[in-house]
Simulated assay, not measured.
Amino acid sequence: MNRRLDAGRTLRTPVRVRRFSPAERWAHRGTAVLMGVCVLTAAFLYIPVFAQLVGRRALVVAVHRWTGLALPVPVLAGLASRALRADLGLLNRFGPHDRRWLRAALRRDRRPSSRPAGKFNAGQKLYAAWSAGATLVMLGTGLMMWFTGLTPLVWRTSATFVHDWLALTLGIVLAGHIGMALGDPEARRGMRTGSVGRDWAEQEHPLWRPSSDR
């Protein structure tokens, strides 16, 4: 009897598939930590209510600058991973199914058949592209604000305007990204452990053909 129960439990055990390599997960975690510090220090620098809580403004400025400068490091270090390079290639490639996914998203059509996606859906691809571009712009404008003697005043004024407003936009987009992640426990599990349930993969990413994790 016990053997039959054990066999039944084995048959009902969800099959998991590999989604992210350790290098990819660490690159994501490192970027998330650095971005979080950048956003937090920016809040202490620009929001008066938070600024009053900090007595050492110069220290906050230094942390913000060096953290922003280090922001690309996790991804650059992760480029040594073949899996990360392969996924970056997938993120940079849009196909007809991505246009279908976006149209369904705009119509708020949540049927899986209306949202075909490979390993990454169109929303994730747009977020990755926008985040990478925004990070580079933030880095460039931040350097112009930091090294004031290298650029004319009009450049630094423009850089400050772009940096501040893009930072606000980035904070809003990050909040949306975190909100989406909180609403999908299996996606979070995939980034935390590297694997996801095959049922979830087939429903959310039907065009993805992963290999079994076990």
Rank of each mutant, 00 (worst) to 15 (best):
V15C: 04
V17N: 10
R19W: 05
F20G: 01
S21Y: 08
A23C: 06
E24M: 12
R29K: 08
M35E: 02
G36H: 05
L40G: 07
T41C: 05
A43D: 01
G55S: 13
A58F: 04
G68E: 03
A70Y: 01
L71Y: 01
L71A: 06
P72W: 02
V75S: 09
L76G: 07
A80P: 03
A83L: 04
L91P: 05
R93N: 10
F94I: 05
H97N: 09
H97G: 03
W101V: 09
W101K: 01
R103D: 01
L106N: 01
D109I: 13
R110G: 00
R111Y: 03
P112N: 10
K119G: 06
G123D: 09
G123K: 02
G133W: 14
A134N: 11
L136S: 08
G142P: 00
G142K: 00
L143C: 03
M144Q: 03
M144P: 01
W146T: 08
F147V: 13
T151L: 13
V154P: 02
R156P: 10
T160V: 06
V162D: 00
W165V: 11
L166N: 04
L170V: 15
I172G: 11
L174H: 00
L174K: 00
G176I: 06
H177C: 05
L182P: 08
G183P: 09
A187P: 04
G190P: 08
S195V: 15
E202H: 12
P210A: 11
P210H: 08
S212T: 13
D213A: 15
